[in-house]
Design a protein around this nucleic acid. Structure first.
Length: 522
RNA sequence: CGGGGUGUAGCUUAGCUUGGUAGAGCGCCUGGUUUGGGACCAGGAGGUCGCAGGUUCGAAUCCUGUCACCCCGACCA
């Protein structure tokens, strides 16, 4: 018996077959990154780095627009600094890389060995609150010095047990904002504001719908008073924390000595915040939008918006086709889309059209244009959207390589609109998926059923987000985590459209003021 | 850090039980035919079989040690 014909997909296995393996294969097929010889560390290749650069550019502009400046602080943190904040050091101790020596010397066997022990070991920053705090302590003397609004783009190291490309690597790239304020209210407002920046960025640039809310005590950043987060649902229905913003109260100010003279002449500790997003966002985008043919990029962060694939079957027409392709590229590059010229690539390599096409499909380029000798005569181009929708209403919808023929001039006129349409479609699709798999749950049984796979040996994609009542106790969180590996992703903010709804804790029956968001997570 | 597993070409791997000096597919290079749904033919390059010892006339294969990686747990942006 022949198996039912399934259209060939570029990525094997498919998402439904083995999601983690599919994820790795998408990265490989898209040539985004690879693991390196250093355990847990990755090489980010140009295509993957280009995505990160676009994220950086957009975020950086948003930080500047909210009054922040960039600066840079050291990679190394004296061990004594880390120890100043008790909860903080406890939270990060297990994942710290520590430099204990400088200088290498040849030993008797001719091997290089570390030679000179440092007087005080240096911790490679897992985050920079303590070392930045030491600087701020010097900079701040008066309320007139406040607020301090600084961001840094940097690498950090957290010695993780189980690395996965982009999602959790030993070294990763991120930005960390660190601010000091005169009042608690101002610092809390900053914390909230930056979370909103992240949520807006996720929605408008990554086409990622997020829940915003507050972490429970057990998930809070070590040393913080309050941790806010954005949480997204990716295609295996797990949650991923895509950004965090912390209200640090006066904890770090106290331990770092960030003190200022108030308007009425008293000494007070500053109120600090910190907030960050990392290269994990690249992994989030992959898991959110990619399909069985590889990456699907939201146009606003795509390194290339349009790829033109010249089809040159005969040497006689080759030059004319190439000229037309380059001419089209020039017309497109003259178009300003969201403040910058369109990024257009003409793939002139001497390879078969199919090979080239599939390569760009796997890289997730939003729009592909084929241009061949027949089009020179008709004035048409063949356009494909990476999100599978049709451009001009003809062709086979839903197939990665379906294409629509339309006049070249029409395409140039419509291209900006098409990119916006793809961006919007990706967001809508992601939101619909999340809505489909988010459920209000009111009983323990339904909750446990929801999060239990039918096949425990090889769990199928199951579960999703559960909005359920909770008595606020750590014990309940612990039990659910132990039983199901499900945690509270956030306590959602009050939403004017959906006021908090009281009920009873699904585990204890005790009263609860609001539903909280539960899920398995990355 | 506990439990399990694997190391053979750039990648995926056969061979190992029963020792005889390494084979395939993909990729790569050259030439030709090709190119609008993932090309074909012919030729070619590429391997101290993770590393170090041992047994043996002879080791990818057997033994010992060691290193690395993967999976499952504890921890995490």
């Amino acid at each position: 018996m022949a198996k039912p014909e399934q259209p060939k997909s570029a990525i094997s296995p498919r998402r439904a077959e083995d999601f983690p393996e599919w994820y790795q294969q998408v990265i490989k097929a898209g040539d985004m990154a690879e693991s390196s010889d250093v355990r847990g560390c990755m090489v980010i290749k140009p295509w993957g780095y280009g995505i990160w650069e676009n994220m950086q550019r957009a975020l950086d502009a948003m930080f500047k627009a909210t009054g922040h400046k960039n600066a840079y602080f050291p990679l190394f943190i004296p061990l004594s600094y880390m120890q100043k904040e008790a909860e903080h050091v406890e939270g990060f101790a297990k994942e710290c890389a520590v430099v204990t020596h400088h200088r290498l010397e040849l030993n008797a066997e001719g091997k290089m060995i570390p030679a000179s022990p440092l007087g005080e070991p240096l911790v490679v920053r897992p985050t920079s609150e303590t070392i930045i705090g030491a600087s701020y302590a010097k900079w701040v003397q008066s309320y007139r010095d406040l607020p301090i609004l600084i961001n840094q783009w940097a690498n950090v190291v957290r010695w993780e047990m189980r690395p996965r490309l982009f999602l959790r690597t030993t070294e990763f790239l991120w930005q960390e904002g660190h601010t000091v304020h005169e009042t608690e209210a101002e610092a809390r407002a900053e914390t909230k504001q930056m979370l909103e920046v992240y949520a807006t960025f996720a929605r408008d640039y990554l086409a990622v719908p997020v829940f915003t809310g507050e972490k429970s005590e057990s998930e809070r950043f070590p040393g913080a008073v309050q941790t806010l987060c954005i949480e997204a649902m990716v295609q295996d229905r797990k949650a991923i924390q895509a950004g965090t913003s912390h209200f640090l109260g006066q904890n770090f100010a106290r331990s770092s000595g960030i003190q200022f003279q108030t308007r009425d002449g008293k000494q007070e500790f500053g109120w600090t915040t910190s907030w960050g997003v990392s290269t994990r966002l690249v992994g989030t985008v992959i898991m959110m939008h990619a399909d069985d043919d590889g990456l699907v990029l939201p146009p606003r962060i795509a390194p290339t918006h349009v790829v033109i694939v010249p089809i040159t079957p005969k040497p006689a027409t080759r030059d004319a086709v190439m000229a037309a392709a380059n001419d089209l590229a020039a017309q497109l590059r003259a178009i300003i889309w969201h403040g910058a010229p369109l990024e257009v690539h003409v793939d002139q390599r001497d390879l078969g059209g199919g090979v080239k096409n599939w390569e760009w499909i796997k890289k997730g380029v939003p729009l592909r244009v084929e241009l061949g000798p027949r089009d020179l005569e008709s004035g048409n181009v063949a356009v494909s959207r990476r999100d599978g929708l049709l451009v001009a209403g003809v062709g086979d919808p839903g197939k990665a390589v379906s294409k629509s023929f339309l006049p070249s001039s029409d395409f140039v006129r419509q291209v900006a609109e098409l990119l916006d349409s793809i961006q919007q479609n990706l967001f809508n699709r992601a939101l619909a998926f999340r809505v489909e798999h988010t459920r209000k749950i009111d009983t323990k049984k339904e909750f446990y059923d929801f999060f239990t796979a039918e096949n425990p040996a090889k769990p199928e994609i199951h579960g999703g987000f559960a909005l359920a009542h909770w008595n606020g106790s750590r014990a309940v969180e612990e039990q659910i985590k132990n039983d199901l590996k499900v945690t509270i992703r956030c306590i959602p903010f009050d939403d004017p459209g959906h006021p908090p709804e009281s009920g009873k804790c699904i585990m204890t029956g005790e009263p609860s003021e609001r539903r909280v968001l539960w899920a398995k997570s990355y």
